[in-house]
């Protein structure tokens, strides 16, 4: 028996919003520790890694490991049926071929349940080693979303260059070029609004705008975003979801031919 209850359905709605442009289907792996999802987009350029810890749920029970392959389009349709203030409970029997979503209004006057067929997905998993990155940049997630949106008007790629002076985001295309430089916040009063740069070695990497814009769909999950970079390895864009876990995106760089 698997059962996971969240007081606010909005978290699950936002998580789905944050992955559904990259993935059409994904496997939710549930065990004692919580719910995990790892999936690449069709082109294998980007990967989503989601963790929702058991202790972040209001109720969590998982007697046996459960693997639930879900069509994310169908799941999105179902979650649209939940009010933002509804509680949501996901339930599945052991070895079941369906999952049930139960939505309850705050006063318990409306209770709805939606059963969805599960899929048998045979998806590739990547083994991602623990990595020490040369640069980590933390900044307000809304600022990152704004930059990606602004720069993607000019070109298809963004060059991210991190040095001890700060971090620079650049692009160029038919109409011209654009650069945004961010320096570390001088005095940190409000941590959520700070730009914090840790750099062991300078790194410059190039990434496709389109994917960065997909990642920013997670903006409402977290006030801050962390970018981790090392030379010649994928970028990690992490949004910490308060009290429950994180969503991380990995993006393969563009390289000189």
């Amino acid at each position: 028996m698997f059962e996971a209850r969240l007081l606010k359905s909005s978290i699950l709605k936002k998580v789905l919003e944050a992955i559904k442009d990259l993935l059409t289907q994904a496997t939710f792996d549930c065990d004692d520790n919580g719910i995990q999802l790892q999936a690449m987009d069709n082109s294998h350029v980007a990967l989503v890694s989601l963790l929702l810890r058991a202790d972040g749920f209001d109720k969590y029970r998982c007697d046996r490991n459960v693997t639930m392959g879900m069509n994310l389009g169908s799941m999105t349709k179902i979650l649209k049926c939940a009010g933002d203030k509804d509680t949501v409970t996901m339930k599945a029997q052991d070895n079941a071929d369906t999952v049930t979503f139960v939505f309850e209004s705050p006063n318990q006057e409306k209770v709805s349940d939606y059963e969805m067929k599960l899929m048998n997905l045979d998806l590739e998993h990547l083994g991602i080693p623990e990595t020490e990155y040369s640069c980590t940049i933390r900044m307000p997630s809304a600022e990152f979303a704004r930059m990606c949106r602004d720069l993607s008007q000019f070109g298809e790629s963004i060059v991210i260059s991190c040095t001890k002076e700060g971090v620079k985001f650049s692009t160029s295309g038919d109409i011209g070029s654009a650069n945004i430089k961010l320096a570390q916040t001088a005095s940190i009063d409000k941590e959520d609004e700070a730009v914090i740069i840790e750099m062991d070695e300078p790194v410059t990497l190039t990434f496709a705008c389109q994917y960065l814009n997909y990642f920013t769909k997670a903006t409402s999950l977290s006030p801050q975003v962390q970018l981790s970079m090392s030379a010649d390895v994928p970028l990690v864009v992490e949004y910490r979801i308060p009290d429950i876990g994180h969503i991380r995106y990995y993006l393969a760089p563009k390289i000189e031919e």
Binding site: M40, S43, H44, V45, A46, L47, E124, H125, L126, G127, I128, P129, S157, T206, A208, V233, P234, Y250, A252, P253, K254, I255, E256, E257
Partner: peptide, 13 residues
């Protein structure tokens, strides 16, 4: 510039 894929960097399990 050419786009790489993640399988260039990480092994599949």
């Amino acid at each position: 510039m050419s786009q790489t894929t993640l399988t260039k960097f990480y092994n599949t399990r």
